[in-house]
């Protein structure tokens, strides 16, 4: 089996078991719903990132700013040279989003636990409800990396001028076709219109993972994306509804397959599907 393009971005269960007490490593559980996940039991020593509260700006629609990121890292006892291992619920959806944020703030060493919560419980089954406390650090954001993110205005320029662009819509087929604006359980993430951005291809994020929550092999992933024209020579933008599943696919394309030009459009459908006089495609 071919090795992933960036093996340093991913660790397995054994690696985590062997590094539970490593002071240079911080294990972070990133949850959408901590009450049903972290609070019910987590990997020993793991700290919590509550995706809604900790990763998003409380006022404007944006990820947290650099100062808030510094505060968060310092509170979690993460220093600039700490190796951070992210894992979480929902097959690592939100862990992948956090990975993207860590990369935006140029954290050196961040990894995803392949298989997330599910694989850990399946294979190890050791969890704790104890919340650890680590000494506060003085984290400093040294550089903001803009390569992995695209805002609406730039997306529109890319769409108009770059024939090499591929837009990957990673939502469910029902959302892509326009049968629904959002799954029913996400009442706050509805849009005025249902459908997708013209020209986008639909490759639901979940097709990149196995039943046990681990990522598929390089061969399987290359086939999955290649069949829809998403190849290493393309300029790729991923989007979903609010940006978290898009960062999962971004991680797969950039770090597992090694594609160079991949960005997340985190405005995603909740931005695009609300624009006035912007053509969209609805298939139903």
């Amino acid at each position: 089996m071919t090795q992933y393009a960036h093996p340093e971005a991913i660790v397995d269960i054994e690696w985590v078991k062997n590094n539970l007490n490593n002071p240079k490593v911080r294990i972070v559980e990133v949850d959408y719903d901590p009450k049903l996940a972290y609070e019910q039991g987590h990997i020993s020593g793991a700290v919590l990132v509550d995706w809604r509260k900790d990763m998003n700006d409380p006022v404007q629609r944006d990820i947290i700013g650099p100062e808030a990121f510094e505060k968060l890292m310092s509170r979690l006892g993460i220093a600039n040279d700490t190796t951070v291992v992210l894992y979480g619920d929902y097959n690592n959806w939100f862990a992948a989003f956090a990975f993207w944020v860590f990369k935006l703030y140029d954290h050196d060493d961040v990894k995803i636990l392949n298989g997330g919560r599910k694989k850990w419980i399946d294979d190890v089954g050791e969890l704790t409800k104890e919340v650890p406390n680590y000494p506060q650090t003085q984290y400093k954001v040294k550089r903001i990396n803009l390569e992995d993110r695209v805002f609406l205005q730039d997306l529109l320029k890319l769409k108009a001028a770059n024939p090499n662009l591929v837009l990957v819509d990673v939502r469910s087929p029902a959302e892509f076709k326009g049968e629904i604006t959002a799954p029913p359980e996400y009442a706050n993430e509805q849009t005025q219109r249902a459908g997708h951005i013209p020209g986008a291809v639909n490759i639901p994020w979940a097709q990149a993972v196995n039943d046990d929550g681990t990522f598929k092999s390089v061969e399987e992933l290359k086939k999955l994306y290649g069949e829809k024209g998403v190849t290493s020579d393309k300029d790729i933008v991923t989007y979903c509804r609010i940006g978290e599943r898009a960062s999962h696919t971004w991680f797969v394309l950039k770090y597992l397959l090694g594609y160079k030009n991949v960005k997340v459009y985190d405005g995603s459908w909740t931005e695009y599907g609300n624009l006035i006089r912007f053509p969209i495609v609805k298939e139903v």
Binding site: D33, A37, Q40, D89, R117, I121, G125
Partner: peptide, 29 residues
């Protein structure tokens, strides 16, 4: 629902099975 294999020795508080729903994955302790 995925139980650990027959014959496994399990300590109190460790998982006997993984239980998953559309918005939850956790342990049967």
């Amino acid at each position: 629902i995925k139980p650990r294999p027959v014959g496994s020795s399990i300590k109190k508080g460790s998982s006997l099975a993984t239980v998953e729903t559309p918005n939850y994955v956790g342990a049967l302790y």
